[in-house]
Design a protein around this nucleic acid. Structure first.
Lengths: 144, 144
DNA sequence: TGAAAATTCGTAATGATTACGATATAATCA
DNA sequence: TGATTATATCGTAATCATTACGAATTTTCA
């Protein structure tokens, strides 16, 4: 994830009138560096080193704010919400992910299935779609 | 959902050595009749009329057993697990769903995006995929 | 610097899911 | 049918992610 993406995220934050706090800065940097899906728990684990008293209230509030302003994208895996740096900040166009269930690493899928069958859903109002492939990535396959 | 599907589910149950209890029967019938995604809570709401003391332990244990033996399929929506009668019991081939976020109704999507890009994931071991479209169905659009 | 608004902390509440010992039930077979 | 055994269920408590909220703190900007 490029430094430019971090800049763009911070810019978004300020544009929308959010305050630029040290916790938010650290969270953005963490996600930019990790470049994979993280749980709220992982976020707090990483950041409690710097901020021993970091509250879950702060973490969740900021995670959801970030999703709102398109800095993060969200998914759900076995009952847990997970977040990753939004690919769109990196200038990438809409796409989907292969997600490694061991380490959270993602690969881009260069195709959106929605293009193929909107006509199958006449009469319904489409709100969103979810397309994800789960498995084990090369690295984790080597290790196990 | 056809009566034949219920028969097939019961057959599966017995084949795999599970006991055929009145709670399991009721759960299977409920899902066959509902023909849409239900939460554990909805299951207990419907069945507590017949079994006032039905335990969540029983509900979850059976839901997961049913998924295991392919009687139900599972998804997750805003932090809640949801289950529906497996389409494969109805003799349908692999497909995906449009899911109404208001009532849980589903429509089949006649196309599996997995066919298109397995080659994009050389080196990874694919375990599963999730492809779902969320929105509001015709009926719920009328009501709102 | 000072005031206003937003943010964070500390902690408790919520709600879905899981766990477990005691009891009940279904399946099997003599 | 009755006894036996493994499985299922009940009742209830524990767990865990997420949410909530009043008090204290921090950022922003004039």
């Amino acid at each position: 994830m490029t430094g430019a993406s971090v800049e763009k995220a911070i810019q978004l934050l300020k544009e929308k009138g959010y305050k630029y706090t040290d916790k938010r800065q650290s969270m953005i940097e963490l996600f930019a560096q990790a470049d994979r899906y993280l749980t709220a728990k992982e976020v707090q684990k990483y950041l409690k080193q710097t901020y021993p008293s970091l509250s879950y209230d702060t973490i969740y509030r900021n995670l959801y704010s970030f999703v709102e302003m398109n800095i993060l994208e969200e998914t759900e895996l076995s009952g847990e919400k997970m977040f990753r740096f939004s690919c769109s900040l990196d200038g990438q166009h809409h796409h989907h992910h292969f997600i490694c269930t061991k380490c959270g690493m993602t690969k881009n899928i260069h195709m959106c299935p929605m293009d193929f069958f909107k006509e199958q859903l006449d009469g319904c109002e489409i709100q969103s779609h979810r397309f994800e492939i789960f498995g084990t990535c090369e690295n984790c396959l080597k290790v196990s």
